[in-house]
Design a protein around this nucleic acid. Structure first.
Length: 596
RNA sequence: GGUUCCGUAGCUCAACUGGAUAGAGCAGCUGCCUUCUAAGCAGCAGGUUUCAGGUUCGAGCCCUGACGGAAUCACCA
């Protein structure tokens, strides 16, 4: 049984025996003891003072006495005001370390039979990925790992936004200005090649609007009637009609983009179990709209448009079908939700989408509920803040974006410079070195984006490059490499260690105890991370673990320890830390090296 | 204007869901590599947690109201 459970049960008994009070187990909460006091767990007695008719200190003292006397876990206690600090015996911690070592899958929960679908990435096929997309991808991928490790059956799905007016804009621009160019002739990655025309369209469009505004004296009309826009709209209609030439152009350009995306995903280390395309799903919602009409959930206006009225729920009126019968975003999402459920019968459906769509999802979930979908409560929006620049929001059309491919390239270069300057990997082949640079670059980037709580916006200053020192991915990766070196040497020196079988009668140094406690907290942190849909919790955890280990590393000899039993213990402890660091980072989507 | 989210050290972020003297990293300053990887460790300095009230034994966290920032409220996606 878990230590904390054992302790709360013991405290329950202590209340009964020492104070004659029957207390519910769920009412007893423990917290970690603050660093400046002795002890591992703290029970706060202020709120019990009334029920016990005694001062908090008195309650704490009596509970403490009883626990020290009767609990095998508690070897000592101290009371500060209403805080009862419980000291757990070293034997207990060593036993736990032994158990951690013996469990090859420590922290990973057994399958719980719950099915989770995580939708993330969902790129548009008219432009390359930028830093904001990276946050989405990393969050989705990390959540998938975390949910899997907490026992869920996880399905990662991508819904590619491959149709619509924005795609047609790139197509129009290419048709007019492309002159037979291809990614090959221009030596450009496919997504960047297509993105170039999306930007080109916007330039042309703006010039036309400006000219037209002068001619008409009406900026609103000009914005709607600019020839390039009309062409794009015309192209969208042709696309929907299935016009052969338009479809061929569309397929060719999307094909280029997919090639580019494949390379980017490859470098990101991100994969999907299934990819959906909007071009195949955008019509699905129309049936749901009809169903909603017959149920009275939606209402049709004179002009034929269909609306949902959510004013009673504190939301607004929302369009679900245009007057001309074509779909809007919401129409599509209604249909796709049903499709997801039909495909997976999920217990949870997680949408990783930016907070600019908070309202959209609030409406979507409410509508699914009103439509009587049993799975409506299982839908959740993992909303995250934008990645902003000092100059404001990133805008693809205006070219004010931090391009993902370019950023990764720069970071790989920086990683290479750092590594070469330190000169610790001279024995590496070119390929090995390149793999390491990439691993470190991605570690820095991913950790940078994952360590911040999802809902907060991130400010990224392109002038100040992402660090490789301090509270960063590479510093955690470094800790792993350090331990790996120790373990290699231990083997060379013939120190035969098994991770289980830790001697339980050794005295522990504070640094060792601290690290064991941190290791022990891993499953709990993982659980919190999953329940809170928060990779940041795991990211913070693994940094603290690495920091705790580095402290130990600086304070105590490991292989140089003369006492064989202590030496063995420290090697075993090191091995366990390496394993948990590796696992945590892996769940976050970050690889760790054995040498750097 | 309505709704939602955010506001913590010069900067970037934590704070175990209401607990003890609010902690890390970066930047600045001081030390530590002829013992295991210095991408590390030890230390100094840095705070009226935006402000004003309230609830509570106890508030960065909960409530009310200001102030500042962001998103959204489209027959856009």
């Amino acid at each position: 049984m878990h230590l904390e459970q054992q302790l709360t049960t013991a405290i329950q008994q202590a209340f009964q025996q020492a104070l004659g009070l029957a207390v519910e187990l769920s009412a007893i909460a423990l917290q970690p003891t603050a660093k400046e006091f002795e002890g591992a767990y703290t029970f706060v007695t202020f709120s019990w003072s009334g029920r016990c008719q005694q001062r908090p200190e008195a309650v704490a003292n009596q509970l403490g006495e009883w626990l020290k006397e009767n609990s095998t876990l508690v070897v000592d206690f101290n009371v500060v005001k209403g805080f009862l600090n419980l000291v757990i015996g070293d034997r207990v911690w060593l036993t736990q370390l032994s158990a951690i070592g013996a469990d090859a899958n420590f922290g990973v929960a057994a399958p719980n039979g719950k099915k989770v679908v995580i939708e993330f990435s969902s790129p548009n096929t008219n432009k390359p990925l930028h830093l904001g997309h990276l946050r989405n991808n990393f969050l989705g991928h990390a959540m998938a790992g975390i949910m899997k490790a907490t026992g869920h059956e996880v399905h990662k799905v991508n819904l590619v936004n491959d149709r619509g007016i924005h795609i047609c804009k790139s197509m129009v621009a290419y048709q007019q200005y492309g002159q037979g160019e291809t990614p090959e002739t221009e030596a450009l990655k496919g997504d960047h090649f297509v993105g170039k025309y999306y930007v080109k369209f916007d330039q042309v469009y703006k010039e036309q609007v400006a000219a037209l505004t002068k001619a008409l004296g009406d900026p609103v009309r000009a914005a709607k009637e600019a020839p390039s826009l009309l062409e794009a709209q015309q192209m969208l209609r042709k696309w929907e009609e299935g016009d052969k030439a338009v479809r061929a152009l569309w397929e060719m350009m999307n094909g280029w983009v997919y090639q580019g995306f494949a390379a980017t995903y490859q470098q990101l280390g991100i994969t999907f179990d299934k990819t959906y395309y909007e071009s195949e799903t955008y019509l699905l919602g129309k049936k749901v709209v009809e169903e909603g009409l017959s149920l009275g959930v939606f209402r049709q206006e004179q002009d034929g448009s269909v609306w949902a009225d959510l004013t009673e729920e504190g939301l607004d009126r929302k369009l679900v079908l245009r007057a001309d019968g074509t779909s809007v975003y919401m129409t599509q999402d209604l249909g796709v939700a049903d499709l997801r459920y039909a495909d997976y019968h999920f217990d949870q459906l997680l949408y990783v989408v930016g907070n600019e769509q908070d309202y959209h999802f609030a409406v979507l979930f409410k509508l699914m509920q009103k439509l009587g979908r049993s799975y409506a409560p299982a839908m959740h929006h993992l909303s995250y803040g934008m990645v902003d620049l000092p100059t404001g929001k990133m805008k693809s059309r205006e070219g004010t974006v931090v391009d993902a491919d370019q950023l990764m390239e720069e970071m790989v270069r920086t990683a290479a410079q750092h590594t070469q300057a330190l000169g610790k990997i001279d024995s590496f082949s070119q390929e090995e070195a390149a793999a390491l640079y990439s691993m470190l670059a991605m570690g820095a980037l991913k950790y940078f984006l994952l360590r911040v709580e999802a809902k907060k916006r991130i400010l990224f200053d392109p002038e100040a490059s992402i660090d490789f020192q301090g509270h960063t991915g590479p510093s955690i990766q470094y800790t792993h490499a350090r331990i790996a070196a120790i373990l290699r040497k231990a083997k060379e020196q013939g120190i035969a260690y098994q991770e289980g079988g830790v001697a339980d009668s050794l005295p522990l140094q504070p640094a060792e105890r601290e690290v064991i406690m941190q290791l022990y907290a891993f499953p709990k942190k993982l659980q919190e991370s999953a329940e809170g849909y928060s990779p940041a919790i795991l990211a913070q955890y693994v940094f603290n673990l690495a920091k705790g280990y580095n402290k130990l590393y600086a304070a105590l000899p490991i292989l140089h320890e003369k006492d064989a039993a202590l030496q063995l213990l420290r090697v075993q402890l090191s091995a366990a830390v390496a394993r948990v660091i590796k696992k945590s980072m892996q769940l976050l989507g970050i690889a760790v090296p054995n040498k750097m």
